[in-house]
Each structure stands twice: as structure tokens, then as C-alpha cells.
Simulated scan of single mutants.
Amino acid sequence: MERVLSGLRAAAEPTRLRLLSLLAQGDLTVSELTHILGQSQPRVSRHLKLMCDSGLLDRFPEGAWVFYRLAATGTGADLARSLLPMLPAGDTTLALDRQRLDQVRAARAARAQTYFTENASRWDQIRSLQVDDAQVEQALVATMAGRRIADLVDMGTGTGRILEVLAPHIQRGVGIDLSREMLAVARANLERAGCRHCMVRQGDITQLPLADSSADAVTIHQVLHYAAEPARVVAEAARVLKPGGLLVLVDLAPHALELLRDQHAHRRLGFSDAEVDGWLSAAGLRSDGQTRLAGDPLTVVLWRAIKS
């Protein structure tokens, strides 16, 4: 009872209702909210703290920034989602907030595109050596067929593409990446695609900011060849998987292209089935087969595993 009353008190103020409306649309920082609301940062911060304390909002530190979003679970989340349909669709203040939110998103997208354009050439070179991305994505979607996936975790999410591809097949998705620049790209991409049930967070994929047994599925797409300790990444994926949960590793079969190590920071030149199976077994996962997609000269492999 007290939790409900606390949430109602926290929401019962015009600015806080505006914040609920805005943060139901996705992640925003204090500075972005200050721009949209036209209020001082200390005042906005006080509202946000009260709403976080009452469970209406979640906060996610990311370097010097903090992102806020409508709470994902709990009494506060249920209350917030119950209040949102009650907000009048034609309210002029909320309409102006939405216009300013569109401006914030456009600025984000422009910054993300600048970063992506400046770095796209190195990704294009790698793509030209392997099977077409569309084939890999189709195979990845096929691995999810027939499974009920409430919560998906994409480790090393990069541009957020895997979340975008799998969004129609999941209830919620979270992508974890250490690079703030890549997270900016991912946020812009997910917003453009309308994937409001997906989010991205800054974090180390060897120490995920997630609870044990909290995910129905985990994807690790073209990440392990950068990892200093791939087995540790696999073990961390196993930690957050629920029993019966699915892990899909997508990476390269063994190859001899040293340019990927010299020019693109690959630590490992692909992985054998035996090596991957060893990591899976050590992490308490049962191999569920592989799918091989031959490119020229690189072959992409999808390794599937189930948590016992």
C-alpha cells in the first residue's frame, strides 16, 4: 500500500507528469530534460530523484552522464504505465514537450551519424570479407523461432543492430557496451526503428550490470574475437541466463587474415568448434549445435547453447 501511495505522491505534480510522458519514450539525460522542460537543472534533478526513490523511474550512470527511463519492473513501473493513458493527448504543454523531444533526438541522430560515418570504412572492409549480414541476421532470427523470450541481453551491442533485428521476437531487450560513442549510435538507431522496448546500457561485458538468471536469451555477435578472455565472457553470459535459457554466439571460424589483427584490433583469428564447446561446457551450458555460413574468405558460425 505504502509503495503505491509513494508513487502517487511522486507523480502528482505537473512537471513530474511531463517527465513520465517524456521518459516513456526512451532514455534522456538531465541536460536533455532541462532543455525540453525549460527548467533549471537543480529543479529537474530534484524531481527525478523523488521519482526514482518512489520506483517510477530507473537511473543508469554512464560515465559523467546519467540516463533516466520509465521503470521497467515493480509497483512503480505498473503505476506509471497506468497513469500514462490518462494524460490528455491534446494537451498543449505535452505537445510542445514532444516537439522539443524530437529536436533532441534529431541532434542525437546527427552526432551518431557523424561518428558512424567517420568509422564506417573499417566495418565495411570486414563485411566485404564475409557472408552478407542479411544471411547472418536471418539465421539468428531462426534460432529464436518457437521460443518465448521475455528478456534478451545483447553483449557488446555496438550499433544496436542485433536488438533491432530481434525486437519483433522479444518483450524486452537490453544491449551492453563499454563505448559511449557506440551507445549513442545504438540509441539513435533504436529510436529510429521505434524499438521502445529495447534499451542500451554502458557496462563491461565481463561484469554485466545484471542479476543472476535474469535473461531468457543472450546474444554475443562478433565480439569474442576482440576479447582478451573469451571464456570469461561466455561464463558471464551463462551467469545471467535463466535455466533453459538460450545463448547464441556469432563469430568467425578459424582463418589466417592477419590484417584483421593488425588493422582492426582482432585479438583472435576465429574459433574452432572444439574451443567454443570447451567454454560452453565449463560455463555449465549444453551445446545445441552450430550453423555455418561460408563467405569469401571468412566463414561466420552461429554456436547455440542451452543453460542446464
Rank of each mutant, 00 (worst) to 15 (best):
G7S: 08
P14I: 05
L17W: 09
L20M: 11
S21H: 14
G38C: 07
R43M: 12
S45Y: 07
D53I: 02
D58H: 02
G63F: 05
W65T: 14
T73F: 09
A80N: 03
A80F: 08
L87C: 08
D97M: 07
L101F: 12
T114Y: 04
A120Q: 14
W123G: 03
S128Y: 07
S128C: 04
V131P: 10
E137G: 10
A145P: 01
I162A: 09
L163F: 10
Q171M: 13
D177T: 03
S179T: 09
R180K: 11
M182D: 01
A186W: 07
C198W: 08
C198R: 07
T206G: 09
P209R: 00
A211G: 03
D212G: 00
A215I: 00
Q222E: 10
A235Q: 15
G244K: 03
G244L: 07
G245T: 00
L247C: 02
A253W: 09
L257H: 09
L259G: 06
L260M: 08
R267Q: 12
R267Y: 10
R268S: 12
G270Q: 05
G270K: 05
F271I: 08
E275A: 01
V276A: 03
G278P: 02
W279S: 04
A282N: 10
G284D: 04
D288S: 14
P297E: 08
W303Y: 10
S308G: 15
